[in-house]
Nucleic acid binder design. Structure first.
Lengths: 338, 338
DNA sequence: CTGAAAGCGCTTACAG
DNA sequence: CTGAAAGCGCTTACAG
């Protein structure tokens, strides 16, 4: 391994001066700098990340804490991870994966090791015990999602208000007046307080009121089978509904396939609009789905950027709320003539 | 931060002795040990991972190098990551994400930082330039996948031979005699040499020969749309085929939906068997798909275990080839009477 | 603009 | 069984 000592010797300077040019920490005379840079190139020097971390008290490592397999994160999560890791790399950082459960003790242990400068907290609950652990440890963190009152914390999240507004506007423009929002099943203990459901439902109530519509809300599990079951409930309990906004992407596949199987035309008889969908979803269904696409990559990037800003001790970065964007395909159209 | 110095002072010993009990490195008298453990508990000591790493020359950090979004890794990849990270944690390690391209220079830079003890290389090509980089840097690594001749390297991979054998056996037992294997499109430059395709095709040739069947091989892109297009080719060019084994899971969804749209009953007229599928796939389709399920979690675990063994300098862990397992649902059945 | 030196918090021969 | 001390490869006041 080539160390600063080696570089310093070859350039005829002290290791402090080498450090100054490597980090740009202090001005160095042009010719000295040139000699050092030459020596580094000759020897193939790379600054050791561990020694740097110990001396500077900054590891430049960030942790991504996510509850392993608690829900179907799958494809959005991978987009998110990749974007976050790439952003971290661009800003001279690394990203470690902490697939910790929502219980706080495990997180506390990991923090104690002193390996990371900050934590990105995914799948935040409205009342999240992990936040207290992070605060007590004075560990910088950013929320991906929001607690009930996220004001005191650095956070980035989907803008559910704007997402619902755009979705409703799209359907309303097409002529739909009987819309339903399918939110997630909250019977699961961990899900009672799940922010995306709570906020979307509230946003739908408000938006529907603004349009003078009745805000019908249904719940569904996450699987395609749950989506199929939903199709039955819809036909039986809400036969007049002409458009469905649905938050679970796998369930939307089951919903569409069961609706078609039972003779409903999509989008002729009923429009289907998945709300927080990943890139792959549209093409997985027939007809291709119009979606509100999840801003996974943007959230990953912004989460890391915000966290690094916070760690650097600059100003506290403002919250970032990013709406899903409408991507039109073939599952929404004007309602049938009535 | 509580350091070993603090613990040593409170227990009335030297920091060396504290280190011995923390790591179990050397025998320590029972009462001394008790005093130290009490002091650690009182102070809430946690050994600093960075200092440990610098002194011991082992960071206990592993890197997961994967080409970001080169293909559709999505859901299997997340299972893999999570399993790998959890295994790492269980063995006192961390996992960092390196979404590096397949080009070797970037990997070399990262290795140079000295942050990681070893690298897990995903999406290995038959002739992979990254392997040379790793070898030159004397960086321990394990392949997830295989180079053309993986013998010299620690590797874990899907056992394509056994997977194809079980898939063919399943279909043959049902009575199918006209099978087709749908492999991936290799027109993409990076894909010409893609191991999973190459090995599956070879395995199918061999297995078909053993059964006295004609080994028809088609290629398809990864998307659902590509799967739909495939349905047309199948009907037109291979009308007598009664069973399709297919390697791309999204394409299998398009294939099934297009077959049904054009009036083919599944599994009545034709059986469909996705070969390296993730857990979610079966329920995403109607009928639910019988699959050969990808051993993502097992590969993640074995990859990390093998790599840690290698890093620890023990014996070189043997290759691990894990077959996909047959999970029967509703897309395979006896062929129609002819 | 540059250097000598302390120090980050551990591990690990070495000595006793 | 335990301790004193060197050392891992950097950063960072401090002095000049």
């Amino acid at each position: 391994m080539v160390t600063m000592r080696d570089v310093a010797d070859r350039a005829g300077v002290s290791i402090a001066t080498v450090s100054f040019v490597v980090n740009g920490t202090k001005p160095v005379a042009a010719d000295t700098r040139t000699r050092i840079e030459q020596a580094m190139a000759d020897l193939g020097f790379r600054r050791n990340a561990v020694a740097r971390a110990l001396a500077s008290r900054r590891t430049h490592i960030l942790a991504m804490a996510y509850p392993a397999l608690d829900h179907d994160l799958s494809s959005s999560a991978l987009e998110f991870f990749t974007s976050a890791a790439a952003t971290a790399a661009r800003l001279d950082h690394h990203l470690v994966l902490w697939p910790v459960s929502n219980d706080a003790a495990e997180l506390k242990e990991l923090i104690g090791e002193g390996l990371v400068d900050g934590v990105l907290l995914m799948e935040v609950q409205l009342d999240d015990p992990r936040v207290a652990v992070l605060e007590a440890a004075r560990m910088p963190f950013a929320l991906i999602g929001r607690t009930a009152d996220p004001t005191p914390y650095v956070h980035v999240d989907i803008d559910f208000d704007a997402t619902i507004r755009e979705a409703v506007a799209h359907l309303h423009e097409l002529g739909h007046r009987r819309l339903v929002l399918v939110s997630g099943d909250r019977s699961d203990p961990g899900m009672i307080d799940y922010g995306p459901y709570v906020r979307s439902e509230a946003a739908f109530q408000a938006t529907a009121e603004a349009y003078g519509l009745e805000p019908t809300i249904l719940r569904s599990g996450t699987t395609a089978a749950a989506g199929r079951e939903l199709a039955g409930r819809l036909a039986h309990d809400h036969p007049d509904v002409t458009a469905v906004m649905i938050m679970r992407e796998y369930a939307s596949l089951g919903l569409v396939s069961e609706l078609r199987r039972t003779g409903r035309d999509i989008p002729g008889d009923i429009s289907v609009l998945p709300l927080v969908a990943s890139r792959e979803l549209p093409s997985l269904s027939d007809p291709a789905l119009t979606i509100m696409r999840s801003p996974g990559p943007e959230l990953g990037r912004l989460g890391v950027e915000s966290l690094i800003t916070l760690v650097a001790g600059g100003s506290v970065p403002p919250p970032q709320l990013i709406p899903c964007r409408l991507e039109i395909a073939s599952s929404t159209a004007p309602p049938p003539e009535s």
